[in-house]
Amino acid sequence: MEVIILDTEREVAREAADLVAGLVRRTPTAVLGVATGSSPQGIYRELARRVAAGDLSFARARAFALDEYVGLPREHAESYHSVIARDVVAPLGFDADLVRVPDGLDPDTDASTDRYERAIAEAGGVDLQILGIGTNGHIGFNEPTSSLASRTRIKTLAPQTRRDNARFFSSPADVPAHCITQGLGTILEARQLVLVAQGASKASAIAHAVEGPLSSMWPGSLLQLHPHATVIVDEAAASELQLGEYYRYAYANKPA
């Protein structure tokens, strides 16, 4: 795992965007895993700036979203179909037909989640998965105690996650109680993982994910199992890391 500590949120976004842009320039048909929430928004803004400048194109790239609320109409402003369309597809110039989001409305959840897993496999797997992390350590919507081998499935959201996401809704009660999420085992199959986090509220989750024991209580710790995982954080999110100075030193002396 590579841990990169930078001064500001903007630098975090730029560093992560460099990784995504480098992949898409090398492989225009790359398959990306896209996350929602606050953490990756800076990445998408930075990538959109490069697209607008003519320096980058996602026209041939494919994308799979991590998750979707169950029961929320697709046209709802906070459904992840809407969020991905608004924040990723349109500003980055994706072909909408090449972007998939889990189906939170299909009553046959098992069938729809199986189809999602097959679609990822048929696309050749995810080349680079963008991740954020919740204050309780969840990635995707894999809450604490999720199986490290889990696949795309329905999950019940933790009360803390619903409270955290209430900022996008009128109240916590309006946040759906259930979701469809890629599993930890699914996420682990991506060829590269890039997790970003900003702010002191994420410091404990980052410390457990990077330096704590591998544990289903902190789902983000699964990144320790991945051969190509990069964690990019600002100083506030890095504030509880015990080896912060080493990570800074290693990044400053990174071999060519």
Rank of each mutant, 00 (worst) to 15 (best):
A77P: 03
F141K: 03
L241R: 05
D234C: 04
A203P: 07
L195T: 03
R25D: 08
E9I: 11
Y69E: 00
M217K: 12
I130Y: 02
G42E: 07
L23F: 09
E2D: 15
S112Y: 02
G33E: 00
L195K: 02
G125H: 11
L32E: 00
Q198V: 15
V175D: 01
E46F: 07
Q129H: 06
G132W: 04
L243Q: 12
P219A: 15
H138T: 04
Y247F: 15
A111W: 10
T8H: 07
A173M: 02
E235Q: 12
S215L: 07
G199A: 10
N165T: 01
C179V: 15
V83Y: 08
Q192D: 00
M1G: 13
S204K: 12
A238Y: 05
E75V: 12
S239V: 09
G134M: 03
G132T: 05
H76I: 05
L148K: 01
E78T: 08
F141D: 00
G199D: 10
L243W: 06
D18Q: 13
S221V: 06
R26T: 14
G93R: 00
H76M: 02
T230Q: 10
R86Q: 07
A63Q: 06
P28T: 09
I43F: 09
S201T: 14
G104N: 06
T113M: 03
H226R: 11
A238C: 06
E15G: 02
Y80D: 02
E143Q: 08
A149H: 09
D103I: 00
P107Q: 08
L214F: 11
G244Y: 07
A30F: 00
R60C: 08
F94N: 04
L131C: 03
R191F: 07
Y69S: 00
E117G: 15
E68L: 03
G183P: 04
A203V: 11
D95E: 12
S170Q: 15
R153G: 03
F168V: 09
